[in-house]
């Protein structure tokens, strides 16, 4: 059978949004976003090891508006992925597997992740 004649499953826009689906999609999206964002962490460490000139270059980027937006997004993705990943691990132990539990867990995950993100940035902006 050639690749093009293999059956396709219905694509995203066919389905009505549900919490289960949103959590699944956002877990994957946040995982990929974190992977891209990890480049910034590596840049920071390599620049710092390289000396003050390289580090100043990184710091200029990180403190620019665009850099701050990247870091804020990365923090949000990190906390979402952390909370959602914890749900995955709990599901692996046989817990939280029903639809009502998924609905509830989803609300908790979004609220906790958003609070942690805003809390961390609030603290940093307040103290710096």
């Amino acid at each position: 059978m050639s690749l093009s004649s293999r059956p396709l499953s219905p694509h995203l826009q066919i389905w009505k949004w549900s919490m289960n689906m949103a959590l699944s999609i956002f877990h994957r999206a946040s995982g990929v976003a974190l992977s891209v964002g990890s480049l910034m962490l590596v840049w920071m460490l390599v620049a710092a090891a390289n000396g003050s000139e390289s580090y100043a270059c990184f710091r200029d980027f990180a403190t620019s508006i665009f850099g701050q937006i990247c870091l804020f997004g990365w923090t949000g993705a990190l906390f979402f992925h952390l909370c959602s990943g914890t749900r995955h691990l709990l599901m692996d132990t046989g817990r939280l597997l029903t639809i009502p539990q998924a609905e509830k867990a989803g609300v908790i995950i979004f609220v906790v992740a958003a609070s942690l993100t805003l809390g961390v940035w609030g603290c940093v902006k307040f103290f710096y």
């Binding site: 990890s38 480049l39 962490l41 590596v42 460490l45 390599v46 710092a48 090891a49 390289n50």
Partner: peptide, 11 residues
């Protein structure tokens, strides 16, 4: 990425 970052930390 791991090697570059880890080496930088060591340095």
């Amino acid at each position: 990425l791991f090697v570059a970052a880890a080496f930088s930390v060591l340095k």
